[in-house]
Design a protein around this nucleic acid. Structure first.
Length: 277
DNA sequence: CAACAAGTTCGTCCCCAATT
DNA sequence: AATTGGGGACGAACTTGTTG
């Protein structure tokens, strides 16, 4: 019975401690049980019980190494599920003062979502790739609609002006032949056992960003080249100076306007799709 | 081999919602 | 209002692995 499976799955993340552990694992790294216990603010014994349920429920996988038990998200689709839940949960209200507010803003600008890029940067790169014909979004939009922003109730504008294909379903992302060639030209070798492109709903931008093996490769590529760097120990990323010019050359991204909200006058000066070729 | 650290199991308590 | 049951939390005791 699929309803029972959905209820069981939802029940797994319908607990504050288990949700905190899953969100911590969104950085794509493997965490020990003790680290996850501290992240969730519970004792080791409590964490052990929660983690056993998450593993048996298929959300997490574990690997024992010596006396350590390493846990990570079972696969990228779990990360997508969590990001989608975050998107529907609405923006967090920072309660920790200025420091928490700054951290929240950094997370919204650029971050990792499991193994790919997210936040305003991830969405801007996705938009640029669609505008350049490297990605094909479905007819009309790049994500589930209609969505509204919890802050204003205003509908989220669709990913406008993108070339669309009648063969690509709404809300899907497909790497075009040109996209495959472009990535190969950058040295990418994408694995065959995973979709090259997949749409992942961004919880801060309320729009899709690129996941799948192409998204993972791009994220790794940017990090290898030191175009983006982790900020602190969390998921937030910072674009380096060389990264700024590289992203402009690759995607035509002007980082001065990334992270602005739709409707913000600063967002109208062309954040995507200008200078790639 | 003892001391230590990480993780698990078990018993117990607490809270909350449903039932009587 | 009292009872019951489920779920989550914790501490103590234990197991397993590492280190000196």
């Amino acid at each position: 019975m699929s309803a029972e499976r959905v209820a069981a799955l939802a029940g797994l993340v319908a607990d504050r401690s288990r949700a905190a552990m899953c969100l911590a694992l969104l950085d794509g790294r493997a965490w020990t049980a003790g680290e996850l216990a501290r992240a969730a603010g519970v004792s080791a014994s409590t964490a052990s019980e929660h983690l056993a349920r998450l593993v048996s429920g298929g959300l997490l996988v574990e690997r024992r190494q010596g006396r350590w038990r390493y846990l990570r998200l079972a696969d990228p689709s779990v990360a997508g599920l969590l990001e989608a839940l975050l998107a529907h949960a609405g923006p967090a209200r920072p309660t920790g003062g200025l420091r928490a507010s700054v951290a929240s803003a950094a997370l919204a600008r650029a971050r990792t979502c499991y193994d790919h890029l997210a936040g305003a940067l991830g969405v801007a790169i996705t938009d640029a790739m669609i505008a350049s014909g490297l990605l094909d979004s479905g007819p009309g939009d790049g994500g589930p609609t209609p969505l509204t922003t919890p802050l204003t109730g205003a509908p989220v504008p669709p990913t406008g002006g993108h070339p669309t294909s009648p063969t690509t379903p709404p809300g899907a992302l497909v790497l075009t032949a040109e996209g495959h060639a472009w990535l190969a030209g950058l040295g990418a070798v994408l694995p065959r056992d995973r979709p090259a492109a997949r749409a992942c709903l961004d919880w801060t931008e309320r729009r899709d960003h690129l996941a799948g093996s192409a998204g993972a490769w791009l994220c790794a590529h940017l990090r290898e080249r030191d175009w983006v760097r982790p900020v602190g120990s969390g998921r937030a990323l910072q674009v380096t100076r060389t990264g700024e010019s590289a992203l402009f050359d690759l995607f035509g991204l002007d980082l001065g306007v990334i992270g602005t909200r739709p409707g913000d006058p600063r967002a109208t000066s062309g954040a995507a799709g200008r200078g790639r070729r």
